Amino acid sequence: MKGKLVTTMLVIIAAISIVAVAGVFLYFNLTSDEAETEASEKLSASELVELSVDTKELTTNLADKGFAKVQFRIQVDTQKAKKELETRMFQVQNSIIYELSGTKSEELQGPEGIQILEGELQKTINDYLEHGEVVRVYTTQKIVQ
């Protein structure tokens, strides 16, 4: 009886701890995303252009035998990051083609599909950059068939 009570209390304490850790984790991740969004919204149009790089228009096959024609504008946080991004553009284009080649046409439909693609590209491009980071990836052209 006493052993079951101790076991039950430990399980309850562990569950409360897990929920608390998850809550703290979510709180900090959500507030950092909001701060990044606010920072990118505070830039003037000319500042945004100065910290952005356009990709070439790319056409590639999709996983379900469809194709996509896309173009992106990638915003970074510093001029040094912009110069590095321009130098690494071949890697960025490769990442876009790679990401799209594993994507089906229906996954690119609607705002959610675009947001997922932009988020994946942002993570991938950030892995390449040694100086600065990608603040946001904007889809400037998208045709899916």
Rank of each mutant, 00 (worst) to 15 (best):
L5M: 10
T7D: 05
V11N: 07
I12F: 13
A14Q: 06
A14I: 10
A15E: 09
A15N: 10
I18G: 13
I18H: 12
Y27G: 07
L30F: 14
A35Y: 14
T37V: 12
A39M: 12
S40H: 07
E41V: 03
S46E: 13
L48N: 09
L48R: 15
V53K: 02
V53C: 04
V53R: 03
T55E: 06
K56T: 02
E57L: 11
E57P: 01
E57W: 08
L58D: 00
T59D: 03
L62Q: 03
G66V: 04
F67D: 02
A68E: 00
V70L: 02
R73A: 07
I74R: 03
V76A: 00
K80Y: 07
K80R: 07
E84M: 03
E86K: 04
M89H: 01
Q91P: 03
I96G: 00
I97A: 00
Y98Q: 10
E99D: 02
L100P: 01
G102W: 01
G102K: 07
T103M: 06
E107N: 09
Q109E: 15
Q109D: 07
G110M: 12
E112M: 15
I116M: 13
I116W: 11
I116S: 14
K123M: 05
T124F: 05
T124S: 14
D127Q: 10
H131K: 02
E133D: 04
V134I: 02
T140S: 13
K142L: 15
I143M: 11
I143Y: 13
